[in-house]
Each structure stands twice: as C-alpha cells, then as structure tokens.
Nucleic acid binder design. Structure first.
Lengths: 210, 210
DNA sequence: ATTACTAGGAATCGAGTAG
DNA sequence: TCTACTCGATTCCTAGTAA
C-alpha cells in the first residue's frame, strides 16, 4: 500500500479537497518535493487522485483500495485466530431462493462444485451492526464460482459461493454478483433446511464460521 | 510502514510462531526469496521480528508500531472530520490532582505553557468502552511538555498536556509519563472547577474534544 | 511562489550460487 | 530442501533547474 495514499487519507483528502503543495507534503513525509511531484503524477495516472490547481482529492477507487487494506488490518488485530465469524439474526426471505435453487442451471453446479444437493430454500441472515465490516472481507476470499446461464428469455447471473459452517454443519454463503439486497444480508444454503435443523425462528441469533 | 510486517501480521505472527519459509513468503508477496531473506535480516536487526529455525514471530515493538499505524487509519476512516472526540463518564479521583496542581513546580509551567491558572482539582473521566482505542491516538499528537522537578527528596515526573475543550470551555488533558491509573481514565484541568461549571456528578456522561 | 523535467547517484532487487 | 551471500540490473531518489 502506497505511503502517500495513506498520508492523503490521514489528511482527510477522502472527504474534502486537501489544499496543499508538493513541498508541504514533502516536508511532512520526510521526502523531497520532486519525489512527491513524481508520485502524485503516478497516482493521477492510475486514477487514484484527482488534482485541481489548489488541491488534491482521493478518488473512489483509492478510498476503496485503502478501505480494503484497513479492513484486513482490522481483521488481523480484532480476529487474530484468522477464523471469520459472522453473527446475525435469522430473517425471512421471499421464497426466491427456492425458485433459483430449483433451476438445474444452478443446482447441478452446486452439486458438482460445492458437494451437496441443496435443500430448496435459503436461510437469510441479517448481520449484526457491529459485524457488518466483516462482510467486506468476503471479497478477499477465493470464491467458488457458480456460472450464470440463460433459460429462454431470462438471464441468470453468476453466483459466488463461500464454504462455511453453522454449528459444525456444512453450508455455503451464496452471493449473487448483482445482489438484490443490501450488504447486511447474507444468504445460506445447505443439504437440509437449516431453519428446521436448528429450529430457528425469525430474529434468533446465529453464527456462521468460514 | 513495511509491507512485510503487515504481511506477517495478517498471517498471525503477532499471536503465534508462524511456520513458514522465505520462499513461501516470496511467493505470496510477489517477491523473490532473496529479497525476503534480506528484509527479514533487517527486521531482525531492528528487533521487529524474532526468528527460530522453524518460524517467525513479531516482537512487541513491531506489534505496537503496527497497532499505532492501524489506529491512525481507523481514525481516518471512522472519524474523518479529524476532530478527536473522547466520551466518558465523570469519576471521583482521590484528591491527588489538587496536591500536584498546588506545587509551584507544575503550576507555574501550566500558567506559562497552557495559558491558565488551574483550578485546584482535576476532573477524572472514565472513557466509554467503545472509545478506548482513541486514547492511544493521543500519543500521535504533539504534547505540551510540563517538566518534572525535585522538591527535597521527592521527584515529580514530566507531564504531557493536550489542549482540549468541553462544551466550548478550554481545558487540558494531563498525562503523567509514569501514569498511576489505567489507560481508560483521563485527567482534565481547567481555569475553574469543571465539575461545578457543568454541575456533573459521578457517572454523568461528558465529551472532550481535542 | 508553484510543478515537473533531466541526469546521475543511491537504494533495492533478484539470478546465480555457496554453505 | 533451507538461508543468505555476491553482483549486475533495475528502480527510485533528489539536486539542479526550466517553465
């Protein structure tokens, strides 16, 4: 991770135009004006900063990159066992999961790549507020890719799957690439009905371990 | 911040011996075995890692350095206004503050360097659990140093002071270098009795802004 | 005052290889 | 296998300076 990006973040260039000069940055980072000039040109070329005559602003791309970096550090400090535990509450879906899982285009791939014939229904979990940041760490893991397909007129998109466990039972987190609900909901599938297996009702707390 | 230290942290070398080799690290960090070897020797020389024949462990020094780095990123993301707000509850002290502030060795310096003649008493604040991490960010700010002195046989140590405000009123956080209470307590001084000024009693919530 | 180019020196890298 | 040395290649830095 580029030190200069981090410096700019600390200076708040992610929220407002940072009014500064290459010499000032050089001073505060123990570097030379020339080096800062060159590095800013590189960052600009990579579309990580935008420059106007009187200031510098981090782009969305840069902020996202920094955030991913920050979250992985956070995970290292706050969850040093390297096991990702997602806590949340059971939530009713709209039965769409059942529909998608019944499509052979998805089902056959799940059997082949994940290793079980899924129960026709998903368990939706709403992550607890304090756990939400962990959701973004999923994208750092290597997904099992369930390819999309066409069925007549409808197009079904790719799904990402991540193997997980709930109380020792194998299951998988399913993330549609074009997700229809917010980042706070995750969707799980398993061989049998997780809801019945653990006799959970809406609002009950549950922990998923990856 | 050294990328290799961050890699080792992510691998959990802060909590247990990381069994690995220079080649493995090289692979996972897109570097060469030679470079990793050289860098590890440097980190070892700087006492940032300890190496045994079968693994690597981050030293306390390294973990502290990484933590400081992490906390400043956290502050940038979670408190982008760049104003540090410390929330806590009022707590009774033991009247020592009154004693120390009455010593001219401290008092004269406070008048000169901080700019007010302190009320003879400190307001102790116990930081809220969720605010505790911010405490460590104090050490990133530039302190006003109140030098220690000797008075007959007793030695009084240096104090660090940080200008702050409570509801617009100027005050200062005082941190004895050899602190006698835990990191969750901060001690404030002001021109008048803060406790009376805001008619706060033990347990009342209060916010300090730096 | 700026920013940024050039040029040459300094630091870093990694292929080859010894122990 | 492993770590770590040498040394030429490459990258990165900054003084000087133009615009």
């Amino acid at each position: 991770m580029d030190e200069l990006l981090i410096y700019l973040l600390r200076k708040g260039a992610n929220v407002e135009l940072l009014k500064t000069t290459t010499s000032k940055i050089a001073q505060e980072t123990q570097s030379s004006q020339q080096t800062i000039s060159r590095k800013l040109l590189e960052l600009e070329k990579d579309q990580l900063v935008e420059r106007t005559p009187d200031g510098i602003l981090l782009t969305k791309k840069a902020v996202e990159r920094l955030e991913k970096f920050y979250l992985s550090l956070k995970a290292a400090f706050e969850n040093p066992k390297r096991k990702l535990e997602l806590k949340g509450t059971v939530k009713s879906g709209l039965g769409e999961g059942k529909y998608y899982l019944s499509m052979n285009g998805y089902r056959n791939q799940i059997i082949e790549k994940i290793g079980f014939d899924p129960y026709l229904g998903t368990l939706n979990i709403r992550l607890l507020e304090g756990e939400l940041w962990k959701r973004k760490l999923l994208s750092e893991l290597k997904p099992i890719i369930i390819s999309g397909f066409k069925d007549g007129e409808r197009t079904f998109g790719d799904l990402y799957a991540y193997m997980a466990k709930i109380e020792q039972i194998d299951c998988a987190i399913i993330v549609p690439l074009r997700t229809h609900h917010g980042q706070e909901i995750i969707e799980l599938i398993s061989k049998e009905s997780l809801r019945k297996k653990f006799s959970k009702k809406d609002g009950d707390e549950i922990t998923v371990i990856l």
